[in-house]
Nucleic acid binder design. Structure first.
Lengths: 149, 149
DNA sequence: TGAATCCCTAGTGTTATACTTGGTATTTCA
DNA sequence: TGAAATACCAAGTATAACACTAGGGATTCA
């Protein structure tokens, strides 16, 4: 039941972009350095985020990546689903492709997988990147430490 | 974010034992047939459940497995944790061995992983094997079909 | 023109998963 | 008493996913 690094790194990267929202493009190298992620690997993840429309890119020197929308309008669920696909603890409760695993019997484990799936989705759909930025600023204020030196 | 077959098959097996609670030992073959699981593979999973004290075994002909406690007292969480270990979407929020991934910064993704972890645990700790049995009987009643022919 | 950046494709070592294979030990029952 | 039914144990294996690395091409700015 682990999230892979795709989802975890991807969310860190999106958080980083949210911190700099409105300041022009952020180069990948900065994100990778700040969050301590391999640049080349992150490149592959952010390519997925770009193709799914969550971020835009600007090529060339002084280029980089930026959020395609306000952090208020992007949820953790948007990011994780883009990178990991639909969240479900078992294939039989994948949102689009629900399978009838058991024709004769009503399957009681399926009920449980649905409840787990829904509880996870409730969490990730209720948190926006802006929430993360707000929390970060709150916790780090008054420490004489600026995140983005 | 998938549960492995360990947790999924293991829960199915425990449900099967709960259905037959109080009726003496159920042989592995019956469980494997009912739930359509490889017998030899299930053997390995149930060995873990036995070592963790959730089931007992009776050897020899007419032997099999039985729950070590009433289905009312065994939760889905007990079963899944025995087979998969503590549930957490990222290692940094594993219950026993929480790691400080980021010394300088307050890590906002960690907050999210904790919320996901807690929501999953809430679900699996709130459902007992008896709940599953009750739901199964409710849904299958009046269908002229008995599960345990 | 050259440095900084994004973009793309392919390869690779490691690990976990989901089994299979092939036995041994114990108990019941005919 | 012997055969069948069961639990118990240890090892091997094919596949796939993960988490990268490597190497280069395209674009833009100064």
């Amino acid at each position: 039941m682990k999230l892979s690094t795709k989802g975890r790194y991807g969310l860190k990267a999106m958080f980083e972009l949210a911190l700099h929202y409105g300041e022009g493009p952020t180069p990948l190298k900065n994100i990778a350095d700040s969050q301590d992620i391999s640049e080349h690997y992150l490149e592959q993840l952010i390519a997925v985020l770009r193709k799914s429309g969550l971020v835009n890119s600007v090529r060339g020197a002084q280029g980089g990546y930026l959020l395609n929308d306000s952090p208020k309008n992007i949820t953790v669920g948007n990011v994780i689903r883009a990178l990991e696909g639909d969240i479900a603890p078992a294939d039989c409760v994948l949102e689009n492709e629900e399978v009838n695993c058991d024709k004769l019997n009503y399957c009681v484990t399926k009920t449980i997988w649905m409840k787990i799936r829904d509880s996870i989705n409730d969490v990730i759909d209720s948190i926006t990147l802006q929430d993360m930025v707000d929390e970060h600023k709150e916790k780090n204020e008054g420490q004489g430490y600026m995140y983005y030196i």
